[in-house]
Nucleic acid binder design. Sequence first.
RNA 1: GGCCCGUUGGUCAAGUGGUUAAGACAUCGCCCUUUCACGGCGGUAACAGGGGUUCGACUCCCCUACGGGUCACCA
Length: 554
Amino acid sequence: MTEDKNLELAELLYPHIKTLPEDMERRYPPRNLPEGAKVTRFAPSPTGFIHLGNIYSALIDERLAHQSGGVFFLRIEDTDEKRAVEGGTELIIDMLGKYGIYFDEGATKDGDKGDYGPYRQSLRKEIYQTYAKQLVREGKAYPCFCSPEELEQIRSEQVAQKLTPGYYGKWAKWRDASLDEVKKMLDDGVPFVLRLRSQGTEGKSFKFTDLVKGEIDVSENFIDHVILKSNGMPDYHFAHAVDDHLMRTTHVVRDESWLPSLPLHIELFRALGFKMPKYIHTAQVLKIDEETGKKRKLSKRKDPEFGLSFFYESGYPPIVMIEYLMTLLNSNYEEWRMANPDKHYTEFPFSIKKLSPSGCLFDFDKLNDIGRDVISRMTADEVYSQVSEWAKEYDPELYAEISADPSYAKAIFAIGRGGKKPRKDFAKWSDVKPYLSFFYDRLFKIEDEIEPRFDKADIRRALELFLESYEEADDRNAWFDKIKAIAAELGYAPEMKLYKESPEKYKGNVGDVAMFLRVALTGRLNSPDLYDVLHVLGKERVAGRVREFIGSLG
RNA sequence: GGCCCGUUGGUCAAGUGGUUAAGACAUCGCCCUUUCACGGCGGUAACAGGGGUUCGACUCCCCUACGGGUCACCA
């Protein structure tokens, strides 16, 4: 009786669906993968925007799949046309590609790749409806014709009565509607959503094991959630169950804000007769909200500065972001990194067990430290090519200067690089310009002043003597001996030791003389090693700047 | 508010019943040094609170507090 009713209802609702679940099972058979291989996915909406939290979980997905010889695919969750952004999918693929995250299958810039597609949910309508129709046949789902106003009405009554809001029990007016009632609405062309006929009980709970949270308490779902929207498209929950089953996902990685809907997902998988994947609900990356002073999860709308593209534009090399995220993901990563400074992060034995169940605050200090460290290990050539790639897009002035004479630029980047204890001047590419601007005449300017306590005549004399004695061929020691000699001639201590013993005997020390020269050449009180600077600048430029500085002394 | 998750120094965090409670970043001091950066050495700094269980709790249980998340035809 009721079975007949359900069969008729299913035909009434989805007459155009001729396929059955078994057709889908045949079309998407279990994957032929070695034991232990994990299948994971990254499943964004095509908004074109990826923030730190997204790549945080994408990295986990990627590592789990590729470390186990499995499959990592990209699925586009575009069931809500309102969220879609023109070219959003391409933007996401490009951005992830910049960070070295690649997919084995899924949506690509020219169509889909792989045997389990389509990988864009908007193209999977028939698949969802096949399962939805089956659920109706089995009496596990039913149409609901309530208008948004009616639902709002129900909701406010529930709130007034301090009841759990939602479509369930006596509030679920279409749950037990007769076939005739449904037919009437259908004939009148009233739009409907499909709802799950929940079997759960409010207040009941059970244990569930999440791979990072461990054993957690889950309340039974008892709400007749929407599974197919009035446009016939599934919502997230239904699509998740159908897609991850058919695409044979073994591990679902998502942030913990999904935990509250886990009960629904569990009921959905049971109703559909699917085996549950393993779940990895990750803690969130948080920030301190400027207004409240409290921690909160990153928000796409409020925190554009945590968008991946923002970090990219700021010049953080993608690998630096990855390195930082790895330290957050697996706490033993830093130790491993110190022991294996030259290995690629993919060689690190990534472990689910090491994922922390608690949220973490994003730390720019730490990011910058990692940035300095990573960049300090690059060769001058690598630095040059990465800086120019970045500057080409985000700092045309810098790009123009360095690309005009690559070997000059590389000589600059070579200063203090390559040894056991390399300089760490840059955490990100936007730090480069302020550091090297003085090497370029167009960017050079006197930024710092020599303290007025020094006699201008001394400064002039020191620089004149330098000009007379400077030989580019001198080695480091010979060069500095000459600076010492100049110091002595002016009545400045030629050795720091002498000066410290009796500062009253001298007008200053050799360091001060070097400082005069430093300001003349770099315009600053601080700079990289002067001998190196001199040689990069070249004799001509050195002489020119020193003369000009002498002139400016008046 | 209901439900769920979390809580070791300023930050990220080791720890899995007996530790002087690691390490990294930040911070402070000293050293190296012609400036800066690097590097070296050292310091300050933590188990949210209260009950149990136990010979013994950071570790196990309960309660409280605090923090976070979530309650859509959005994902």
